[in-house]
């Protein structure tokens, strides 16, 4: 997997990988296996950067994942889209934060807080 050349994959294949790695990350997060969560997060970040680097910034293709049945997939898609589809991404994140299903609800709540909420204010000093 480490030698996978993302630049050779089309957008559909990248979307499939985004979902697959997000679902693996879901399991790792439930098990509090943070090194695995970070490893998969790094890979998903590479997909975002690959889509961003393509003509016209193709990250918008991730929008279809905002309605995926798995909350971790929705969370990662929302995180990737927060700057290009802020309203939809924010709504998705808020629903996860309000779900009461932890730990992801806490992650989503903190994401919003660090994006433009209380935690962002605290960090700015």
């Amino acid at each position: 997997m480490r030698n996978l050349d993302l630049s050779k994959l089309d957008a559909d294949a990248l979307l499939k990988l985004h979902v697959e790695w997000s679902m693996q990350q879901d399991v790792a997060l439930q098990r509090a296996n943070i090194s695995k969560v970070n490893e998969l997060g790094g890979r998903i970040n590479q997909i975002n950067n690959e889509l961003k680097s393509r003509p016209g910034d193709q990250r918008g293709t991730l929008a279809s994942l905002l309605s995926h049945p798995n909350a971790q997939v929705r969370f990662n898609a929302a995180q990737s889209l927060i700057r290009i589809l802020p309203i939809e991404a924010r709504q998705t994140m808020q629903v996860i934060a309000d779900s009461g299903v932890f730990p992801l609800a806490g992650h989503a709540g903190m994401y919003l807080s660090m994006h433009d909420g209380e935690a962002a204010r605290i960090l700015r000093g």
């Binding site: 997060l29 509090a32 970070n38 975002n48």
Partner: peptide, 22 residues
């Protein structure tokens, strides 16, 4: 306690595309 401690170490995508934990 486990979830919060784990979150401190979880890397999150930053505005510039880099990954940084809380």
């Amino acid at each position: 306690h486990i979830d919060i401690t784990s979150y401190y170490a979880t890397r999150i995508e930053q505005e510039d595309g880099s990954m940084l934990s809380p």
